[in-house]
Nucleic acid binder design. Structure first.
Length: 286
DNA sequence: AGTCTCCCCTGACGGC
DNA sequence: TGCCGTCAGGGGAGAC
């Protein structure tokens, strides 16, 4: 599931239900699910066998399962519709089941990767000395990472010739923020999505980061955001943060601050939701 | 190098 | 009923 809070909910589920279990075998039911594993599906499945899973890691929207006593990790990205589910063996296969991992123990559960749109996937990679899969070295730390550098982020925004929402979605600047939490944080910060990043003062950037963290922590506290059954934790349960959204999906509804009807604008093949009064467009528009 | 558009998929939904 | 266009929470490749 797409953004940082939802992925972290999944990571915690894996830590509880999958960590420290030894893999018996893996079964790839759709080759596209492992397309980022260049050596192929057979190689992927074979190389997982017999390894014990360490503590699951996460950076932004990526998560991974380290394989103990190796320098390898199984990297996962949920894309738009991916789910990692811990299911009883006897549970019927999901319609979009792409991959199954069985464990060499007496626990009656297996790990399943289910993905309707197949934008997500799993792959096996070497890790850097700090445990990060090497292929995601370009992904920036996320705002909940204690080592995220607020000042460096501000300086990067000042250097960039782009707009603030594009920057929030740029995973090489700050990771874990997607369309929903970008709109939520911008609404809270009273910033228009097309505001040039070069115009943000240091206090303004810090305030924005504070809102990004607040909205993500609030979502995390209630299990993430779920509009439908696609976005669930490893036990298939939905989070409740959709009830707390202030901007995303609220076209035509009154702004929760000033009552002005919220607007939706097409934006990069998606949508941006904002309050036309609280979040005024930049004066110099392109 | 930085920035931006396209495109990989399936399914749901509304209008005609 | 069915067909078509639109939309959906992502990010990488490749074009400027």
């Amino acid at each position: 599931m797409p953004e940082l809070p939802e992925v972290e909910v999944v990571r915690r589920g894996l830590e509880r239900w999958v960590a420290h279990r030894t893999i018996a075998d893996a079964e790839v039911l759709h080759p596209r699910a492992v397309r980022r594993h260049l050596a192929g599906a057979e190689d992927f499945a074979h190389r997982l066998q017999g390894h014990r899973v360490g503590t699951p890691g996460r950076r932004g929207k990526y998560l991974w399962l380290p394989l103990e006593d190796t320098r390898l990790a199984v990297l996962a990205h949920l894309g738009m519709s991916g789910q990692l589910l811990v299911q009883p063996h006897e549970a019927a296969d999901e319609k979009h089941l792409r991959l199954r991992v069985r464990f060499a123990d007496e626990v009656d559960t297996e790990l399943r990767f289910v993905d309707q749109r197949t934008f997500g996937g799993l792959s096996l990679h070497d890790t850097t000395p700090d445990g990060l899969p090497d292929v995601i070295a370009h992904i920036a730390r996320d705002p909940l990472d204690p080592l995220f550098d607020d000042e460096a982020f501000h300086q990067a925004l000042r250097r960039r010739r782009t707009t603030v929402k594009r920057a929030l979605l740029d995973q090489s600047l700050i990771s874990g923020v997607g369309n929903i939490y970008a709109d939520e944080a911008l609404w809270r910060a009273r910033l228009h999505y097309d505001r040039p990043t070069g115009s943000l003062t240091r206090p303004r950037t810090r305030e924005l980061l504070g809102h990004v963290r607040d909205v993500m922590n609030a979502a995390l506290a209630v299990g993430g955001t779920s509009f439908d059954s696609l976005y669930v934790n490893v036990n298939g349960e939905s989070g409740y943060f959709d009830r707390s959204l202030d901007a995303y999906g609220r076209e035509g509804l009154p702004c929760k601050r000033c009552g002005t009807p919220m607007r939706r604008r097409p934006w990069m093949n998606r949508s941006s939701y904002f309050c036309p009064k609280c979040q005024t467009p930049p004066r110099i528009s392109s």
